[in-house]
Design a protein around this nucleic acid. Structure first.
Lengths: 119, 119
DNA sequence: CTGGTAGTTGAAGTTAACTTCAAGTCAAGT
DNA sequence: ACTTGACTTGAAGTTAACTTCAACTACCAG
């Protein structure tokens, strides 16, 4: 057992719930980054778990990876994002969620009230 | 201008906001149905607009077409679905929406509180 | 130092949900 | 009847988001 603060791709995959291949794919797309060992293996900082949690949440509400990338790009470069940074990003989705909720609510209240459906 | 209560694929596409090709695709999958003219063209009942509105709402909250098909399959056969029927279907999504909202809220309240992310 | 688990790559394969295409045929106003 | 725009088909193409594969290399406990 090692006590370093760097995680292998397998560890980060297991902890984040993504498949190894997905994590590598995200790295290729630039959504997460890793440093490399002398032998060329990936090593991730713990903060990557937050990025991945963010990505998961974003995917759950239907954002594309392109949109996630755009959101992540607005994080401050050079320093580890704070809770406030993450909070700002997620609150940007609130509109989208609210729209989804509104659409669902309209549907629940009977499809008569649906707007723009041409009924 | 015609006054029939049947709609062509173009009309139903325009009114529902789906592309013609999407409507045809949905018919092929059995999500919507159409009668045919003597010449083989599709003619849709107006109630198809409700099905399509339902499909759109379902897609918006991230359901796959398979899931939509399963939901639609639970509608009563033989009669045009009532508002109560549609309402019952959409309320089945409430859990899903609530989960999405919960996940987002957790994220907004700081990623510290995220469950199962391994942070 | 050796064995076994975990990691590496690029390329190709997969699935969902459509869209596009080509080569026609149908519907309807004049 | 003619014209024009809308419609028909099956097959092939597209895009996103991954996964799988094969052949190989790294890491590390004992």
């Amino acid at each position: 057992m090692h006590t370093t603060d760097l995680l292998t791709v397998g560890e980060i995959a297991r902890r984040s719930g993504f498949a190894d291949s997905a994590v590598r794919y995200y790295e290729k797309l630039g959504l997460v980054s890793a440093i490399r060992t002398a032998g060329g293996q990936r090593r991730f900082e713990r903060s990557t778990l937050r990025r991945l949690a963010f990505i998961r949440a974003a995917r759950n509400i239907g954002l594309s990876l392109d949109e996630v990338a755009a959101a992540l790009a607005s994080l401050p470069a050079g320093r580890t994002p704070t809770r406030a940074d993450w909070s700002r990003l997620s609150s940007g989705w609130r509109t989208r969620l609210d729209d989804q909720i509104e659409a669902l609510t309209a549907l629940r209240n009977g499809l008569d009230s649906c707007i723009g459906c041409g009924c």
